[in-house]
Amino acid sequence: MKPIFESIPLVKNENKKRFEIDINGKYAFINYGEFGNQIALVHTETDSELAGEGAASAVVEKTLQYLEANAISLLPFCPYVFAYIKKHPEWKRIVSPKFKGYDKL
């Protein structure tokens, strides 16, 4: 994660059902669904002004840290999150073994 994003807090916006970071009024976020002690991450998006700056990776990393710290099991339906975990296999530790694509991570 780029140092610029380290001090930006992750917000769990329950009204919008997304994890988000606010970078000077521009957002990077991941939509989620909660199922008991599991969270499905379904879509990652960043404002176009943040494209190529690492904001999407930052919000994913911060969200995975949040899930681990809160002992929440992950269902990575979002293709970006899925690819991020493939690239950073240490995060497979928080993926639910019941996730259909678990063996592909």
Rank of each mutant, 00 (worst) to 15 (best):
F19Y: 15
F19C: 11
F19A: 13
E20F: 07
E20I: 10
E20Q: 09
E20G: 09
I21E: 01
D22W: 07
D22T: 13
D22N: 15
D22R: 06
D22K: 08
D22H: 08
I23R: 02
I23E: 05
N24R: 06
N24D: 14
N24K: 11
N24E: 13
N24C: 08
N24L: 06
G25K: 12
G25S: 15
G25V: 10
G25Y: 09
G25P: 15
G25F: 10
K26L: 10
K26W: 05
K26R: 09
K26Q: 15
Y27I: 10
Y27S: 05
Y27G: 05
A28E: 02
A28S: 13
A28M: 06
A28R: 00
F29P: 00
F29V: 04
F29N: 06
F29T: 00
F29L: 11
I30H: 02
I30K: 01
I30Y: 01
I30N: 04
I30G: 04
I30L: 12
N31A: 13
N31L: 11
Y32M: 15
Y32I: 14
Y32E: 10
Y32N: 13
G33C: 09
G33L: 15
G33K: 13
E34F: 10
E34N: 14
F35A: 14
F35L: 14
F35K: 15
F35G: 09
G36M: 15
G36W: 06
G36F: 07
N37P: 14
N37Y: 11
N37W: 10
Q38L: 14
Q38A: 12
I39L: 10
I39M: 12
I39K: 08
I39W: 05
A40G: 08
L41T: 03
L41M: 04
L41A: 07
L41Y: 05
L41W: 02
V42H: 12
H43I: 06
H43D: 09
H43S: 06
T44N: 00
T44G: 04
E45N: 08
D47S: 06
D47E: 06
D47C: 03
D47I: 03
S48M: 12
S48F: 06
S48V: 12
S48E: 13
E49Y: 02
E49F: 09
E49P: 03
E49K: 05
E49S: 14
L50W: 08
L50A: 03
L50E: 01
L50R: 01
L50Y: 04
A51S: 09
A51P: 01
G52R: 04
G52L: 04
G52E: 03
G52C: 03
G52Y: 03
E53D: 08
E53A: 06
E53Y: 03
G54L: 09
G54N: 06
G54H: 03
A55R: 00
A55M: 02
A55L: 01
A55D: 00
A55C: 02
A55E: 01
A56S: 11
A56H: 02
A56P: 02
A56T: 04
A56M: 03
S57M: 05
